[in-house]
Design a protein around this nucleic acid. Structure first.
Lengths: 223, 223
DNA sequence: ACAATAATATGAGATATCTCATATTTTAGG
DNA sequence: CCTAAAATATGAGATATCTCATATTATTGT
């Protein structure tokens, strides 16, 4: 992890100002940090000392179960908070957060700002909104995961992540995210190819029948 | 739905005061309402005009999918907010909320209080905390649901809901909540009985081997 | 008290999904 | 450039879970 100083710091503070999220001057307290790919922003079980706000990059939230199985719970991307649970709750099991690309974020030290943040309506409103959206998404994902077979969730995921009609995600990451075995994920991909929805091109898949995937994905949408 | 007036209203306002959640006098705006069993507090798709705070009773959150399948997403019980999503977000698909017992709650009208509530740090902090816990629970439930078979989730659910060693929930509600078919739920119950973890007594189940259920349930805990 | 509806119960066959074994290809580190 | 590790790929059999059919028992409204 690298901490940006001087111009580099200033540049990010200006380009991605978050002062509108606070009604007090926050900039002086902000550390601008760069994490390399695969670095841990927070280690599972260790309470962070900062509230983070992601400027660019992507990260993943993991949790380890007692049986040793590690699960990817969610993705984090630009404009997400990290560590807000620990800011708000005395008791909270901290999940692990690992970058999947180079990630730049603002780090706001609890020991200097906690009190002020918790007194600031502007900030609290922003945080409340963030949390409410997070809760809604989680809840949607949850009920979807239970109510429908992989076919539907995968179709949705493909449409969300495909770039110019080409799907390039890593199977390993995806089967973890969608909570299915590698084997079964591949099986459903094979089905999609058989049915002509996708065409395999090396390790990528080209979408052939967008509307068919869309039908499958629409089944789990209602908002 | 019945609206309590005079002494009855006053009684509830005093017995279950929520004035500590606000830094302005909220009581004058509060309507005290009683919903009968199976009444809808909010109908799916209809934005509510009130923020609700549950005093006693239980309710269920439902969502209907395009394929017509209705899913129970979560339970609501005393000290939960209802309608906070609609208070915070302009755009939000409102889920249906139906009582499962007689339910008494406070109703705070948006049109009179929205602005004040959104400016009140005390309230916002309370709400943020509520939401953060909600998000965490959802997220735990989600990863659990994907990572483990029903056996584990059911063991956990039994321990959570059993009263003095006796489990009395309705299968119909539970299979919906846990997202499995009625048939399969019964099948796992039968297994638990075979293995001697539970003993069937009429329509109830008596826990025989608490430690065995606990083992199963602990597998999905880490906090 | 009776009829209608909801909840419980069980069997049997279908499907979704998992585990394990094993082979090949790609990627990362020295 | 070479090797180890990670990712991809595929088969086969096991298990979890679903759907449908059907019967019995509670609950509720009139």
């Amino acid at each position: 992890m690298e901490i940006y100083k001087k111009q580099k710091r200033q540049h990010y503070l200006e380009e991605h100002s978050i002062s509108h999220l606070f009604s007090f001057p926050i900039e002086e307290f902000i550390e601008v940090r760069e994490y390399k790919r695969d670095e841990w922003i927070i280690r599972e079980g260790m309470r962070p000392d900062y509230l983070f706000y992601v400027i660019e990059g992507k990260a993943k939230i993991y949790v380890t179960y007692q049986n040793g199985k590690v699960s990817l719970i969610n993705f984090i991307s630009a404009q997400d908070f990290i560590g807000e649970m620990e800011l708000l709750n005395e008791v909270y099991y901290t999940k692990g957060i690992q970058t999947s690309t180079k990630t730049i974020c603002f780090a706001i030290p609890f020991h200097q700002c906690r009190t002020q943040m918790l007194e600031d309506t502007t900030f609290l409103r922003a945080l409340t909104k963030f949390l409410s959206i997070k809760a809604t998404r989680m809840s949607a994902k949850y009920s979807q995961s239970l109510a429908f077979p992989l076919e539907n969730r995968l179709a949705d995921f493909i449409l969300q992540t495909a770039d110019e009609g080409v799907y390039k995600e890593k199977h390993v990451t995806v089967c973890d995210f969608l909570g299915v075995s590698y084997r079964h994920l591949l099986h459903v991909f094979a089905q999609f190819c058989d049915k002509g929805y996708l065409k395999k091109e090396g390790h990528h898949y080209r979408i052939q029948q967008h509307n068919k995937l869309n039908e499958l994905s629409m089944i789990l949408k209602n908002e």
